[in-house]
Write a protein that binds this DNA or RNA. Sequence first.
DNA 1: GCGATCAGCT
DNA 2: CACAGCTGATCGC
Length: 681
Amino acid sequence: MSSFEGQMEEYPTISIDRFDRQNLMARAYFLSHCHKDHMKGLRAPSLKRRLECSLKVHLYCSPVTKELLLTSPKYSFWEKRIIALEIETPTQISLIDEASGEKEEVVVTLLPAGHCPGSVMFLFQGNNGTVLYTGDFRLAIGEAARMEFLHSGSRVKDIQSVYLDTTFFDPKFYQIPSRVECLRGILELVRSWITLSPYHVVWLNCKAAYGYEYLFTNLSEEFGTQVHVNKLDMFKNMPDILHHITTDRNTQIHACRHPQAEELFRWNRLPCGIISKTGIPLHVISIKPSTMWFGERTRKTNVIVRTGQSSYRACFSFHSSYSEIKDFLSYIRPVNAYPNVIPVGATMDKVVEILKPFCRSFSKSTEVKYKPLGMLKKARTVFLESDEDEDLFDDPQLMPLRHKIPNQHTFQPLLLPQKPEPQDCPGQKKLSIASSRTDSVQTSLLTNFLDCEESNSEDEEQSEASFHRGLNSLPLQKQESDVDIPEWKIFFKNNADIPDDGSENLISSTEAGGSQSPRLFSDSDGDSTHISSQNSSQSTHISEQESQGWDSQSDTVLLSSQERNCGDFTFLNKGGSRNRDLVTSCQLEQITSGPKDTSDVKSRAQDGEATTVNCEKDANEEEQKLLNLSTSVDSQSSSDFEIPSTPGAELPKQEHLQLLYAKLSTGESIAIENKHRTSSS
DNA sequence: GCGATCAGCT
DNA sequence: CACAGCTGATCGC
């Protein structure tokens, strides 16, 4: 649960995800996603009154969040005051104090957060530096490196502070199985049950919150069976989700809810009340998505755990694990990191303390220096410089550890070609760069279906034994034995940090994935399962985006996507332009980088004037120098590729990681396709 | 009657 | 475990 108070030190006149108390005076509001614990005060009469007298105050969020929010009439008073910002589209916002007329400019960019539909992180750039508010997020390891807007050119932006989702920032949650692993487990459990007969149904015991949609869409996609839910009007403009859910109870997959659902289930009843089909009683199992973890080294767990005769728990997390957070934070390397979530029993100070080792202000002596070839002319002088000297980090020689991993897919999540990247694309090399990072942790390869077997084997129930025997003999398991399963020793042979129990149960693929340890090149997604490009229920995209909003977007300027490469913001005033296709030119100003990312922002936006600017494919000379020129239009190749990987490092199956990261980084959902296909078809 | 807060539950 | 809610009791306006 978020305990963020709403304000950031650097930009105290804006409020994020909190709308009560001191936030009532904010000049602008931001909502990262539509979960209640991030909406405190959002419908309070006091804020409603404030809105009525402060006509310049707006709420900024993603288009999907706006849609979800306005589906509830309780928030309809916000309708005229919400400005939906497109993902990864830098937008200038004027923060105006209506009493004094004082004005401050800030540029905000929404980045996909992978937490629930519409969820975003906010990247703010202005005179007080660059700060990132993550909201709640689940990003896989390596995804920060793929986020274009966290970079300037090929380097990571100089980020002053990160306000971080620390829900699972505890070694106890060291590793949580990836979305794909969890999804596969659930898919196969569901398959094993609903294929027994048309009267075998599953109930997904989900909480009343957004975030399970990609589970529904993938199940529906896999089995051609829509998922029964209580309500779907909030998705009316999101066909990627809408097509996979239904209010018709006559289906084998249910995610409907009822206050006494658990009680009903004990009587073999579904929350929606349906108990039979054509007079024949239904056989129901429940699957309860829960966050589990493979954290403590001596502990073993499974993606699917049977908890009763007809009850299962399935691993499922909306939040990044400890290692994922660590990866994210140590890639960003902010000067400060502040927790948005304080676990019960902990204090803000304590969590700040454990975040420090991953911040820039922490002693650099602990940092492993990686010197790329060809940069030997000037010795590093890290220890002679102030740790806080921002110029230090503007020195190209000091930044090579954190090169951006180019990914064209980052920008247009739903406009992607359905075809995976070729296996020999340059992107493979960039993964080797990522794996050279000291904190790099690769998720593990082999985690899925044996889980059921293991978990069932210790179960008490005998009456369903035949079902479980059936489950254990699923083709999946066979599949895993069909492919080349690397042995435990292969994964760990170079690893000095083998878990104490790591030598146990070598035959269990789950163990290989479960007892996670840093610096492993195991691969959770590298087996023969094909990850297909499908719909995107987790994305922040909304179909048929209404054009409304731009007219009222005073104090708002869309910036060119090129700013990421320029490292500077370059503005063109095109008042009233609302369609990027209509923008034909863009003025570029090349401004020497200052200590702050946006100290050089030049804005001519006038108060109360909608100003929308888009610069397209007008890369300036500077970025052309930065990027290796390529004849391929699609190529995002850069000098990054020429940095060798750490000698002796084992590489993951890059084609799989590449593909998966590409999907995940764009917020696409991932569906498991027929195992007989190859991953590159 | 409504909102805020908390305990209890899942 | 918590997750992200919901329900109901209590209290104050």
